[in-house]
Design a protein around this nucleic acid. Structure first.
Lengths: 226, 226
DNA sequence: TAGTATTATTGTATGTAGTACACAAAATGA
DNA sequence: TCATTTTGTGTACTACATACAATAATACTA
């Protein structure tokens, strides 16, 4: 009996963030059928001598020019007819990037890779809606007990950016003062002497994620939770 | 270019429970090389026209006779050399069963499927140690915010069984009285009139998981957490 | 059958953490 | 200089987690 001819693909849901625009998702416009001209999550077939993560990073780089800061496996989608041509099983990943690192790609409408606000997404090819929903669900869950939010922010950020990020992801209002109190007592942020004024209002201190401290605490069994 | 010949497999970590023996894992003894005679997680190749979950259930049934009550995708393992023969990517699942439903298999030493206490596992084939560790980690995490524990208990159970289950899975001592108080105020258990005496000591009331109520609460956005 | 061991049930006191607020301070712009 | 905006700091109240004790109902045994 010959081996079943099941093709293996990887797909990546990449999230970006901007305090003004909220959460966005990186999509590509398909050049070929099926779904030619339609929007889709970046991805493609895994090569025979390639690790899954390598494949995701390669496809992302090829199709969008983006290199993710954070990448995590999401779920494997294996329904029989998810691809009209062949049996394709897709291992989906989700990634987080600092959008400002890739300004050229993100703002170029002419390119076939584009950021979409996650509340205003176009129709998606294949079962990519389902993949995206799974990724959003995961992001919402994960942000509450892992400090992955910093992958979406600049290295130094005013506290309000972090606050707005959590409100944007969780889609709820969070009391500014209580959030800050709670977050600061986790003791994984460094408050810098620098201040930043963003137009109007009192300027705020800049903060930095203290990842050394976080990993030390995690190792010691102290759990993070927001 | 022909499609890469990557084989796709599914593996299943099946957990069982007994108040006396604690958590156990279902393993099979391999009949063929590689790792002939060694112990492994049940699993096998996915057929071309078969869904992933169907494949897991089929392999489990074929190799162990067990039908799981609860099955969830765990993680996909795709390292290049995880199988010495070919490139095999494995979609791992984990399942929970009421061990008492399969007494025949569980207690038959002669069979090549056997329950092992999760603290006394034999050497495992392939990268199955890693898969098992991932499954244990997931189980420990999931049990705290999803009522999956009931899949391991009989339909009606004394409260002490539930208490011992949580202690066994989380591997910590939990105050009996506080645990009961907390769990009861979640309001997802029915207390029955029946009592059960298990040898010695005061007999306790039997409880039942009220899944209707749980799903109604979940739908209403009320979160479960222990 | 009385006493002992074992397990279940119920309750309370205490501290910590979450929640809902109010007000002062530092900037901008009219 | 006054209104507006945003940040920084504080407080009262409530709810929940934690630690711990006393009583009740069964089995076992002497």
């Amino acid at each position: 009996m010959s081996a079943p001819t099941i093709r293996l693909a990887v797909d990546a849901v990449v999230f970006g963030y901007d305090p003004k625009d909220g959460i966005s998702v990186l999509l590509i416009q398909r050049k070929y059928d099926p779904f030619k001209g339609g929007w889709a999550i970046p991805g493609g077939l895994v090569l025979e001598n390639e690790n899954l993560e390598t494949a995701v990073e390669r496809e992302l780089e090829e199709e969008t020019g983006v290199k993710v800061d954070y990448l995590e496996q999401l779920y494997t989608f294996g329904e029989l007819n998810r691809d009209p041509r062949n049996r394709v099983v897709a291992v989906a990943y989700y990634g987080l990037v600092k959008k400002s690192d890739f300004h050229l790609y993100a703002s170029t409408d002419a390119d076939d890779a584009k950021w979409f606000n996650w509340t205003e997404l176009p129709e998606l090819a294949f079962d990519h809606v389902k993949i995206l929903e799974t990724a959003i669900e995961r992001l919402k869950g994960k942000i509450r007990y892992e400090p992955i939010g910093f992958e979406l922010l600049d290295d130094k950020f005013p506290f309000s950016d972090l606050h707005k990020l959590y409100e944007a992801i969780l889609e709820v209002d969070i009391d500014r003062r209580n959030f800050k109190k709670k977050f600061l007592q986790l003791d994984i942020l460094n408050e810098l002497d620098e201040k930043i004024s963003e137009g109007k209002g009192r300027p705020g201190s800049l903060f930095q994620f203290n990842s050394d401290r976080y990993f030390a605490m995690k190792k010691a069994g102290i759990n993070f939770e927001v």
